[in-house]
């Protein structure tokens, strides 16, 4: 077998089946993994969550993960936010001609490992090869199905005054990691992505107390964007306590240098959870026992004042508005 991806690998012939056998089947094998045109799944009469997401990340490999791990976590976490136990996943690859096979295998291995951890089965896939320069290394799209727990009724429109706002860990790490990995700033800092599958954390919350109003994963746009979305969807105000928001000191340092706010940097392993205060303190205990949520914290509360706005009590006790999300993140120039 060749050592890099060629256009022939995407042509549907022998090389395609070799690639599937040697890379994908090897890592994604389970009884439902299909060789036919579609996977056949047996699901009893159940409420299902169904979601899809495309992944483009440059560089494809970064401290704390790679695009493969990311593509599983993203879909698993989207399902988890709906209170859905991840069941099945399909993945479609668009690979640039010339991409080294051993690196593809590295990505597949990460997918295998993450899927196993999250309890989701990869049951179908597709591979296309694009000419050199048409894609940046590779793109992955994953689609997932999950079974919604009967007690789960989460939605961005369910936040209510009196709810506490929880984040399940320190914020902004993935976005910061990618900025640094692109190496454009000449900054060296020990930051690793928070990329992680979060079904375990969600399940432990539901088994503790299922009176949970909102769960959202704070991916692109970061925690700030998600909070503004929820404030709007639920037509409530949100008040944050800035000193309570967990931020890794290295992330804080990088943001200080570049003039960025960690509230607007992407996370790939952090949830924002809204629940009545009494429930929230129990949830927090449960989260602290999960390895991806040890730094979970209550960062604020929901109010009926200034609906649609996010207000911050700053570290010196004053109140300001959290700047609404918008535009590209641009580092400052002086």
């Amino acid at each position: 077998m060749e050592t890099t991806i060629t256009l022939a690998h995407g042509a549907g012939g022998k090389q395609t089946s070799d690639l599937i056998a040697h890379v994908f089947k090897k890592h994604f094998s389970n009884p439902e993994f299909t060789a036919d045109d579609a996977a056949v799944l047996t699901i009893q009469e159940q409420k299902l969550a169904f979601t899809t997401d495309g992944f483009i990340v440059s560089p494809w490999k970064f401290p704390g993960g790679n695009i493969g791990k990311l593509s599983i976590c993203g879909t698993v976490n989207d399902l988890a936010c709906m209170g859905a136990k991840p069941l099945y996943l399909s993945c479609a690859f668009v690979i640039e001609e010339g991409f080294p096979l051993d690196q593809l295998e590295e990505i597949a291995t990460a997918m295998e490992k993450t899927a196993l951890e999250a309890g989701i089965k990869i049951v179908a896939g597709d591979t296309k090869v694009a000419g050199k320069g048409q894609v940046d290394h590779l793109f992955i799209t994953t689609t997932g199905v999950g079974q919604i727990m009967s007690e789960a009724h989460t939605s961005g429109a369910n936040a209510r005054p009196g709810d506490a706002v929880i984040v399940t860990g320190d914020i902004g790490r993935h976005g910061c990691t990618i900025l640094l990995a692109r190496n454009t700033y000449g900054i060296d800092a020990a930051v690793t992505s928070d990329c992680a599958p979060l079904w375990g954390a969600v399940e432990s919350m539901f088994t503790t107390d299922n009176n949970i109003h909102v769960i959202r994963d704070a991916t692109r746009g970061g925690v700030g964007t998600v909070l503004y979305e929820i404030a709007e969807q639920s037509n409530v105000g949100i008040r944050l306590n800035r000193p309570a928001i967990p931020v890794d000191p290295a992330v804080k340092g990088v943001c200080g240098m570049l003039g960025l706010d960690p509230m607007y940097l992407a996370c790939e392993g952090r949830l924002v959870v809204f629940a009545p205060k009494k429930t929230a303190s129990k949830l927090l205990e449960a989260l602290h026992r999960n390895k991806y949520a040890q730094n979970a914290a209550i960062i604020g509360e929901v109010t009926d004042k200034m609906p649609g706005k996010v207000i911050v009590t700053t570290e010196i006790g004053t109140e300001t508005m959290l700047p609404p999300p918008g535009g590209e993140l641009l580092p400052r120039i002086c």
């Binding site: 320190d170 309570a244 967990p246 890794d248 804080k252």
Partner: peptide, 10 residues
Amino acid sequence: MEQVPAKNEM
């Protein structure tokens, strides 16, 4: 993780 001061302390 950084220890955060209690609200308004400073």
